[in-house]
């Protein structure tokens, strides 16, 4: 890290958290105006639905597409775990705030990074190959996947010290940090917000199915 990276990192985190809070509050307002939505949410059935959908192979659709299920879960788990548990990041947390937690052994982190990249490539190929996905795909969908894998690509390149002859390590790190910052900042404001809304859309459907219609939704 160089001093000029600091404001960038701060901006990204502020964008992430302020963005998420803003989205959440304004959506809650909107939901309250639509008088039936909030009263319909049911804690028990909402939780039941979320739970059933974060367990691999628990829903019929997940069983019908084993490959996709494996890739999707591996992608998401690695995508969330890698940046949080990365040694290279841990050092930064420590120097900035003195925070410390367990880190992935570097080889494992390399592997999870590659899983995310591979997952991203899989999603990109699927968008081209599967007609039902291609039908609803726009350029932005490709860009989004590229954005999602970009910190992984750049981080990996930096760590492996590849292309050092043409791109100095520090530049590579800068590129990586810019990609990472964009990644973080994009979450609240792009379709990546599905990370946030997943909980609510599932909970709502789970409440309708469970509490009102007395049926299972998985």
């Amino acid at each position: 890290m160089y001093p000029y990276h600091v404001p960038l990192v701060w901006t990204a985190f502020i964008a992430l958290f302020a963005g998420l809070s803003y989205r959440l509050v304004s959506m809650a307002r909107l939901a309250a105006r639509e008088k039936t939505v909030l009263p319909t949410l049911d804690a028990k059935y909402g939780a039941r639905s979320i739970l059933h959908w974060v367990i691999p192979f628990n829903s019929r659709n997940m069983r019908m597409r084993p490959l996709f299920t494996v890739v999707s879960f591996a992608f998401h788990i690695c995508l969330l775990a890698t940046p949080l548990l990365l040694m290279g990041h841990a050092v930064l947390w420590k120097t900035a705030w003195g925070l410390r937690w367990w880190s992935l052994p570097p080889v494992v982190a390399d592997a999870t990074t590659l899983v995310v990249i591979a997952g991203g490539v899989f999603f990109l190929l699927r968008r081209i190959a599967a007609p039902e996905v291609r039908k609803v795909t726009a350029v932005s969908d490709f860009l989004l996947v590229l954005l999602v894998i970009s910190p992984f690509l750049t981080g990996f390149v930096a760590r492996m010290q590849w292309f050092r002859s043409s791109i100095p390590y520090s530049t590579m790190i800068t590129i990586h940090i810019v990609a990472g910052a964009l990644w973080l900042a994009a979450i609240p404001f792009t379709r990546l917000s599905h990370m946030l809304w997943f909980v609510f859309s599932r909970a709502y459907m789970g409440s309708e199915f469970g509490a009102i219609r007395r049926a299972r939704d998985w």
Binding site: R33, E34, E132, V133, T137, W197
Partner: peptide, 26 residues
């Protein structure tokens, strides 16, 4: 007439096409 539900649904959909297999029309 619409609000949060519609907005969340439109925004959240990641265009993954996983719903296709569900529909008898498709």
């Amino acid at each position: 007439e619409s609000g949060a539900r519609l907005q969340v649904y439109v925004e959240t959909c990641v265009r993954c096409g996983l719903c296709a297999e569900a529909c008898h029309t498709y």
